[in-house]
Nucleic acid binder design. Structure first.
Lengths: 358, 358
DNA sequence: TATGCTGTCTGAAACCATTTAAGGACGCTC
DNA sequence: GAGCGTCCTTAAATGGTTTCAGACAGCATA
């Protein structure tokens, strides 16, 4: 492949001049500039990103570290980041950690020698990322945390307002007349789980609801966890009339367990998820959920990383995106409740419109 | 960060010896080797992948080009490839093309200057990739096509036996007594669509079924396509008693349209998808589908790429993976049919067992 | 004892493709 | 003819890999 030397020969200028033309690092008179550009176009020359990176101590690479692309929430985040990266001439390196901190560290170490400009991380857990991040920062790389934050995180970040979203979901159920509301939350070593629980609890407190201890369950963010915990909840007395799930996958597991126990959602028990995945529209019944945009999360993170690359001294930014409660058919007022037939009706309408609006 | 020169000083050996120890490119006596390794561990030294790549004309990068990570079939493929890459010390660069050939070419061009060892491509369409691939091959990079093949592809590839899978699905419906079977296929400029259609047609021919022209519909591989085409099909006379979808997303759209038209699946109309996504278990009704392992597809492709990097002269390989027909509740014998109550019963059993086995 | 062979290592240099600091050529102005 | 910009060239530097000549020890052979 053509290199700069060949371009220089073709254009009859020196190596340095070619570089200056390409990078705009010095004034070059038009005729010369044109000769260089002509040579570039004629040969289809593209500068070697390796040599460039070696010399500049930084490549046009963004590294993205996520738990698992198979979790349907993350493709959106990745896609958002990749779009922003691509449109700015950056490439995205993708790494899966399976929420395993040692694998995370392994990736972090190995990636460093590629000198990425930025690092977008969905942390595996609360473990201290500060040491690793500091290595990157010292090397001039931007580090942005997304979706959840590690302990003592003092860098750029993008998350959604989990507490607020959870609060609205719980409040909606309370408005329908529910008082026996169980929570199946995600791992409590993740800040998003913690924040969601905070939101649920705030709503309960405001409504003076005191739940039995067993009504709070913790599990992993997957369907089997939701399934197992729901089986437990359905055996409790009094049986919960509603379940708030830490994410949609947990909610899917809940729906499955409810179905298996010959109960009916929403007539016997209401369910609300979190994330608002596309699939919530096609489950039976369609799942109500606190929607958050993974795409926006990823795109904002990539933009933040690029901004920081451009100006490493700008003040640190914490972006908090809004959530939106999407009511579908998985919620109804509790049975045997005297109150709240009006909110019940309202909910059906909301469900129908949200569904058809999709 | 530490560089090789520092390691050489620390170990009291020459630069070249460090390189030889690290790469095993020459015999080095144990005591010396140990001194070098000690220095490496003490400093946490890692060789610069950029300098290394620059000199060796090749980096430990695998580039992966896919249509869109948001399509739920692809995360499995990506994950399979990333796992193999990671465990062999390679990193994965992910690129989305949106099935847009020009974007594909843009990615291909831009990536070249990173000198990836291999390229794993799910081609955007039939467009000739030969030119681009040839560039890469000449640069010593492996190119593997996955899932579908471009026109005249003469390199390594990994696909599933689409024709066979489609044949089985069609045959199953025929066995249940269906004779009015519609097909909503994916884009016919993709080889997987072509092959699936071949399989459907082979089964029809064997059963001497001649479908009206309108029973063959072509659309994009997404839900809205399946939805729109199903609306058309449901207006036809005679109305099809079954739909074979080109993939699961199309089938999801079909289920939605059927539901909206106040018809019932499977009583009024049966549906079989293709891909066997996880979500097929949670739709209403659970969707029967021709399962293929995206993970295996991706893993095999990455392994093929690494094998080719290791030996560029080994014979070209075309891996064809098996599919598996998973029967769930979206299929039943057609109404008003005298035949086939026995296969009908059999299908219910198969459905139940397949469902609980998940 | 001299000779050659082998295995292990050193040191130097070339090379990869770029960036960038430093300096030189040239014309213009005063 | 000194001073000053402007435009361009030169050459060092980045961090590795790889080649090559040579040193040196140990050993077998004559």
């Amino acid at each position: 492949m053509a290199n700069m030397k060949k371009i220089a020969e073709l254009a009859g200028v020196s190596l340095g001049t070619v570089s200056h033309v390409l990078n705009g690092t010095a004034r070059v008179r038009e005729p010369l500039r044109k000769r260089v550009m002509d040579a570039v176009h004629a040969t289809g020359y593209q500068p070697s990103q390796l040599a460039r990176g070696l010399r500049r101590d930084k490549t046009n690479i963004l590294a993205m570290i996520i738990p698992d692309i198979l979790n349907p929430f993350f493709p959106g985040v990745v896609r958002g980041a990749e779009d922003i990266a691509f449109s700015n001439g950056y490439r995205l390196v993708l790494c899966n950690t399976d929420n395993d901190h040692s694998k995370e560290v392994a990736h972090l170490n190995a990636l460093r020698t590629y000198l990425p400009s930025g690092l977008i991380v969905i942390p595996s857990d609360l473990s201290d990322l500060t040491t690793q991040a500091e290595h990157y920062r010292r090397a001039g790389a931007a580090v942005v945390c997304v979706d959840r934050l590690p302990r003592n995180w003092d860098g750029d970040s993008v998350i959604v307002d989990n507490t607020e979203g959870a609060f609205h979901a719980a409040n909606y159920l309370i408005g329908l007349g529910h008082r026996q509301i169980a929570v199946i939350n995600g791992p409590m070593n993740l800040t998003n789980s913690q924040d969601r629980l905070k939101g649920f609890r705030r709503a309960f407190k405001a409504a003076k609801i005191e739940s039995p201890h067993g009504y709070f369950q913790e599990t992993t963010f997957d369907r089997s966890g939701g399934y197992a915990k729901t089986k437990i909840l359905l055996k409790m007395l009094p049986r919960p009339t509603a379940i708030l799930a830490g994410n949609d996958l947990i909610a899917f597991g809940a729906l499955l367990a409810i179905h298996e126990e010959k109960l009916h959602c929403p007539d016997d028990i209401s369910v609300i998820g979190f994330d608002g995945l596309d699939l919530t529209e096609t489950t039976s019944p369609p799942l109500s959920s606190v929607y958050q945009s993974g795409y926006q999360l990823g795109a904002a993170a990539a933009q933040l990383a690029l901004d920081r690359v451009a100006d490493s001294n700008s003040p640190i930014r914490h972006i908090v995106l809004k959530t939106e409660l999407k009511i579908r058919e998985s919620v109804a007022p509790p049975k045997n409740t005297n109150g709240a037939t009006v909110p019940a009706k309202k909910s059906r309408v909301a469900a129908a419109s949200a569904f058809s609006a999709q």
